[in-house]
Design a protein around this nucleic acid. Structure first.
Length: 842
RNA sequence: GCGGGUGUGCCGGAACCGGUAGACGGAGGGGCCUUAAAAGCCCUGGGACCUCGUGUCCGUGUGGGUUCGAGUCCCACCACCCGCACCA
């Protein structure tokens, strides 16, 4: 390790601007924190640790949120290294995406140039802040060497029948001019642009993530993630259990016999209460039956207009259900009765089967609609308590809402008297026996739409040929690269409008009229597998080596923002499972443990340039240094809690670091002067050092950096007390060295510098994590709390390990205690070395 | 409506298995040093009361409960934050 002598303006003063940059630059230039041997060759097992942060999107310089993620992450990584782990700590950029394209369109920038310029800016900030990433494994998703393998991933999924193309009603974002996945639509708006999305039919590529719906749900129980995120994913996957049941039409259809319409229901037990039937307005049978009935056409028109308006006005109230009485009836297979058929906008074409049996008594929406249309509300359940005790019967005339609670069946033929759960089971069994349908699990999760009408992304590696259809680009021809001369000023997709790019020969038949797929893959495809590429970022033979994937996956600790709870995190889980089933790796999950760091806000509100409350990392390290920035963030709160920058004090952190600086230099000066004697308070300091080592170790293991720092401050105060008492010998040195090694993961620069000032050659970051003898903490005497009837009335000091009788006697000798002891205690609680509680009658 | 989470001094936050509530820091107040300032250092720091003490009472969102003892466990509620929501 080379010397870190920095230019020193003032020898005595803590000047982070002088000491930090040279050290930072050296760590970067010398690749100090690169893993050697590289991860692809390392299968050592036990002492390895894969630490990952969500890689940033390079849309400008880093913001405080990035600084927080990386600071938490870096403290973890540096600490783990000092405890002897071999840590894979890679970095990269999620470098494809719309902002680059927008810069190109609005300012004529070259998206690649724009992206790499931003990356350089971010890289220099990251280096400046002392984050110990492995710069040998760095990757960029917009690099053809990377997206070649993104395209390979697509072809693998295609081969596995997990990628397919279909026409569907998709979300069109009119501002970003592209389709979006369901996950990217929030409250009917594009999550990026905020524009109200339109539902349009379009032929697009999808990943069959629903194939893994069950596993994605069940395996949430096996990973150590915040409950919040797991809940979000559970909600998103939205599993429900029920049955599909076929209802015949009451008349004959086109084919000369009754048509059958399948409904999905989670409450088959309520089928005797199904008094009408509802189709989604767009249901094909409705179109077939209604033909071009002008009234119905008008209704359809109104519905389509209305649903858009509803999305805009956040659909809270005014949810009157627009219905249309169709020109036919359905038959309830269980009662044999004809029931009227409606179209209504509260039934959605793309959930379940697009048609429902309506049970007003047991479903609020059906109830509302029945009241509105004057339809029969038939009571088929008698409410009970959860324990099965009978409650009052329901009265259809006076009910004001549907009954959703437990009960026993009534008016339900053979099923009368059964508790509803039993009835559900029996009815499903009977439905299956009669061939009317079957049990069925349904998911809210839809397949992942991956086509984007954008041009700064990996092209979909498909060639469309009139004779051969959709032809995958042969592996040897990957990557399908983007042309460098795209014109971003054109209307529509620049890739599509490029004069030559899309025209190719069909790889199968040589047809000259074949064209490339002009869409690109969703950026979330790029990021769904980058943690695998880190294992061999430069390999041209494979996306990742299986042996390395088996050695390093799942990622031991993943740190990043909660905003990716259902997007990136769900997609990555899907990709890992799919690749596992293709034999490319063995892990079931990508990320074993997830930490969602809190947000950095200002006065309770998100920071933004427009609000004028923006603080950027650069300002903070320019004024106080990177160590202060890092320390401030970690000391402010637990990693998962938000930090309000208005509430924290970089000044306080800087003051403390200055004190550490001064104490260390003063000690060095004392040693140099040959004046290094320990004084009478060294025992206290020795204890304080041991306590800090033990306490900080525990705190860092538990990622409680805030309390760890508090303990280091306490140790600093103990050093100060000792030196004021005249100490300046080996015990003080030991205390300072312990302080620096314990602080090293949090504030890497000042500790490195002071470590050298104390005369050490190597890096403090290569020091083993300190340990202490816990017996040092044992006291000869302990203070015991004395309670009377549970209230603290005094404290006594006794030899540690004192017997109850001794403690009790000492306690009763205390005046205040005695004054509260009216008579003999009826009971005494004794906790050795801690507390005695005398209970008297009262 | 459903699900998840959070409520502790002026502020950020501590508090192992139920055992001294408020560690550590910030802001504030007082002092030392200094011609002055900065820096540094020291003291103080939940509220109320009085007999001014090694004093009493109150105090961890609210109300109950369990316990010798509850911020911590149980029940009910309130407030706020986040997510989902016409999902059959």
């Amino acid at each position: 390790m080379t010397d870190t002598s920095a230019p020193r303006v003032d020898q005595d003063r803590y000047d982070p601007q002088a000491i930090e940059p040279p050290i930072a630059q050296r760590w970067y230039d010398e690749r100090t924190y690169s893993l050697s041997p590289p991860p692809s060759a390392d299968r050592s097992g036990d002492d390895t640790f894969y630490a990952l942060t969500m890689f940033p999107y390079p849309s400008g310089d880093l913001h405080m949120g990035h600084a927080e993620i990386f600071t938490i992450h870096d403290a973890l990584v540096r600490h783990l290294r000092m405890t002897g782990k071999r840590v894979l700590n890679p970095f990269g950029w999620d470098a494809f995406g719309l902002p680059a394209e927008n810069a190109a369109r609005n300012r004529g920038a070259d998206p690649s140039r724009w992206t790499y310029d931003n990356i350089e800016e971010q890289r220099s900030t990251i280096v400046r802040l002392g984050y110990s990433f492995d710069w040998d494994t760095v990757l960029y998703t917009c690099d053809p060497d990377y997206y070649r393998w993104t395209q390979w991933l697509f072809l693998e999924l295609l081969d596995a029948d997990l990628a397919y193309r279909k026409e569907a009603l998709v979300n069109w974002d009119p501002v970003d001019q592209t389709v979006l996945a369901n996950e990217q639509v929030v409250d009917g708006r594009g999550e990026r642009s905020g524009a109200v999305v339109q539902r349009i039919p379009r032929t697009q590529w999808f990943f069959r993530i629903t194939e893994y719906a069950d596993e994605l749900l069940d395996d949430l129980d096996t990973i150590d993630w915040p409950e919040r995120v797991k809940t979000l994913q559970r909600n998103w996957i939205g599993r429900s259990e029920g049955a599909e049941i076929a209802f015949p039409t009451a008349d004959r259809g086109k084919r000369g016999k009754p048509d059958e319409v399948v409904v999905y229901t989670t409450r088959p037990d309520t089928i005797f209460g199904a008094t009408y039937f509802v189709f989604a307005p767009e249901h094909p049978l409705v179109a077939e039956r209604m033909g071009d009935d002008p009234a119905f056409a008008a209704y359809l028109e109104e519905v389509s207009r209305r649903s858009e308006l509803e999305r805009i006005s956040s659909m809270e109230d005014d949810r009157g259900k627009r219905g249309f009485r169709l020109n036919f009836d359905m038959v309830n297979p269980f009662t044999g009765e004809d029931i009227p058929a409606y179209a209504a906008d509260y039934v959605l074409m793309d959930y379940g089967t697009g048609a429902i049996m309506a049970v007003p008594v047991g479903d609020q929406r059906d109830f509302d609609f029945a009241r509105q249309e004057g339809l029969e509300i038939r009571v088929i359940i008698r409410p009970t308590t959860p324990d099965g005790e009978l409650l009052d019967e329901l009265d259809p005339d006076t009910m004001t809402e549907a009954y959703l609670g437990p009960g026993v069946m009534v008016n339900s033929g053979d099923y009368d008297g059964l508790p509803w759960e039993d009835a559900k089971e029996r009815i499903i069994a009977d439905v299956e026996a009669k061939g009317w349908g079957h049990a069925r699990v349904n998911f809210r999760l839809r397949d992942w739409l991956i086509s984007r009408q954008r041009s700064w992304g990996p092209p979909v590696p498909i060639i469309h040929c009139d004779t051969c259809g959709e032809v995958p680009v042969p592996f040897e021809d990957l990557p399908v690269t983007l042309p460098e001369d795209l014109d971003f000023q054109v209307q529509g997709s620049p890739l599509d409008q490029h004069p030559t790019w899309k025209h190719v020969l069909c790889p199968q038949c040589g047809n000259e009229d074949a064209t490339r797929d002009v869409d690109t893959l969703d950026t979330f495809v790029d990021s769904s597998w980058y943690f695998l590429r880190y294992l061999s970022p430069n390999s041209e033979e494979f996306a990742w080596p299986k042996e390395a994937a088996d050695a390093w996956l799942p990622v031991d600790q993943y740190t990043g923002g909660v905003e990716h709870a259902v997007l990136h995190l769900l997609y990555s889980r899907f990709v890992v499972k799919a690749m596992r089933d293709r034999g490319y790796l063995s892990a079931d999950e990508p990320f074993q443990r997830l930490l969602n760091q809190g947000q950095v806000v200002m006065d309770g509100a998100a920071m933004s340039k427009s609000k004028g409350n923006l603080v950027v990392p650069g300002e903070v390290y320019d004024e106080f240094g990177a160590d202060t920035l890092r320390g401030t963030m970690l000391f402010a709160s637990a990693p998962e809690d938000d930090i309000d920058w208005a509430d924290v004090s970089p000044t306080g952190m800087h003051k403390w670091l200055s004190r550490v600086w001064r104490l260390t230099l003063e000690h060095v000066a004392r040693e140099d002067a040959g004046d290094a004697e320990d004084g009478r308070s060294v025992d206290e300091l020795r204890k304080a050092t041991a306590a800090a080592i033990i306490g900080v170790s525990e705190d860092l293991d538990a990622k409680k950096y805030n309390t760890g720092i508090a303990k280091l401050m306490t140790l600093t105060n103990a050093v100060l007390d000792a030196t004021r008492d005249g100490s300046g010998g080996p015990v003080v040195r030991e205390a300072l060295e312990s302080l620096l090694t314990l602080l090293a993961p949090i504030c890497p620069f000042i500790t490195e510098e002071l470590w050298h000032r104390l005369g050490h050659e190597g890096s403090v970051h290569d020091q083993p994590w300190p340990t202490a003898d816990a017996s040092l903490l044992e006291e000869d005497e302990v203070e015991i709390v004395v309670q009377v009837n549970g209230k603290v009335r005094g404290r006594v000091t006794v030899p540690s390990g004192a017997e109850q009788a001794v403690v009790e006697e000492a306690a009763r000798a205390d005046e205040t205690v005695a004054s509260h002891l009216a008579g003999e205690p009826v009971k005494t609680i004794f906790v050795p070395d801690k507390l005695v509680n005398l209970v008297v009658k009262g």
